[in-house]
Simulated scan of single mutants.
Amino acid sequence: MNGPAHQQIDEMEQALRADGMRITRQRSAILRVLAESDDHPAADELHRRTREMDPTVSLATVYRTLSALEAHGVIHRLTFEGGGARFETADSPHHDHIIDMDTGAVIEFRSEKIERLQAEIAAELGYDVVHHKLELYCRKR
């Protein structure tokens, strides 16, 4: 494995070590699944995928690993209405989300028009945007 996924895994391993955790075979599998995910898996889905690589991984190990990674800011916990927490690596460029209310699918998107409009509205009210998140809950036509 090369490139961005390898770099993400290195960063996540450093965060776990900083939290006093050893990088076990099970944790390595969890980190690899996280780094290779192109969606926003929930803990139970992450557990299922990781068990395909290493059947000995427990759900408790997944939760402890996610908690440590989140505490160190290398992953983000996303909580969408009507669903449990989902996770994504923190190194991706800013984006917003569309949540398909029928399927639960989460689609990432970026719109320069929306970014510009938010900055304009904030400026009109005397503010600079420091951080924001936009979630659109949608149904297919």
Rank of each mutant, 00 (worst) to 15 (best):
S28D: 06
S92G: 13
C138P: 00
H132N: 11
I107Q: 08
K133D: 11
S111P: 01
E81R: 15
A29R: 04
T103P: 05
L136D: 04
G83C: 03
T89P: 04
A5V: 08
A71W: 02
F80Q: 02
I9S: 02
G20A: 02
L46E: 01
A5I: 05
I23L: 14
L66F: 07
R139S: 09
D100F: 03
L125R: 14
P4A: 12
P93C: 00
A42I: 00
L69H: 06
L59E: 02
V130M: 11
V57I: 09
K133F: 10
R22K: 14
D39Y: 15
Q26W: 00
L69F: 11
H97K: 05
R51Y: 03
R17A: 08
L125D: 08
D44Y: 13
R86M: 05
D102L: 13
V62S: 01
G126Q: 06
H94E: 13
Y137H: 12
R48M: 09
H76R: 15
A71N: 14
A35R: 07
D19N: 13
A90C: 11
Q8Y: 09
H47E: 00
H47F: 08
D44W: 09
H97M: 10
R25Y: 04
L59C: 00
L66I: 12
G73A: 11
E124H: 11
S92V: 10
Q14I: 08
T24Q: 00
R49G: 05
I114H: 06
R51S: 04
R25G: 03
R49F: 07
Y137R: 12
G83D: 06
G84Y: 04
G20Q: 04
E36V: 00
F87E: 01
R51I: 05
R17K: 15
S28E: 09
H132M: 05
S111N: 05
T79Q: 13
G83A: 15
H132R: 15
E112H: 06
T24L: 02
Y127H: 15
Y127E: 09
A71P: 00
E11D: 13
D91S: 14
A71F: 01
I9T: 07
A68M: 09
S67T: 14
K140R: 14
L136K: 08
F80M: 10
I99D: 03
Y137S: 01
N2V: 08
P93E: 13
A29T: 06
P41M: 11
R86P: 02
H40G: 00
D102A: 15
N2Y: 08
L117A: 11
T65A: 03
Q118E: 10
A29E: 03
D102C: 05
E108V: 05
R22A: 15
Q7I: 12
A85M: 04
L78C: 08
R22G: 12
G73D: 11
E11I: 12
E45Q: 12
R17V: 13
I9C: 07
P41H: 09
I23P: 04
I98C: 02
I107T: 13
T50Q: 02
R141H: 06
I107C: 02
D102I: 00
A18C: 03
Q14D: 14
D19G: 08
G3T: 04
H132Y: 12
D38E: 15
A5H: 07
R77V: 12
R51H: 01
E52A: 15
Y63M: 10
H97D: 02
E81F: 12
G104T: 03
A43M: 02
R48G: 07
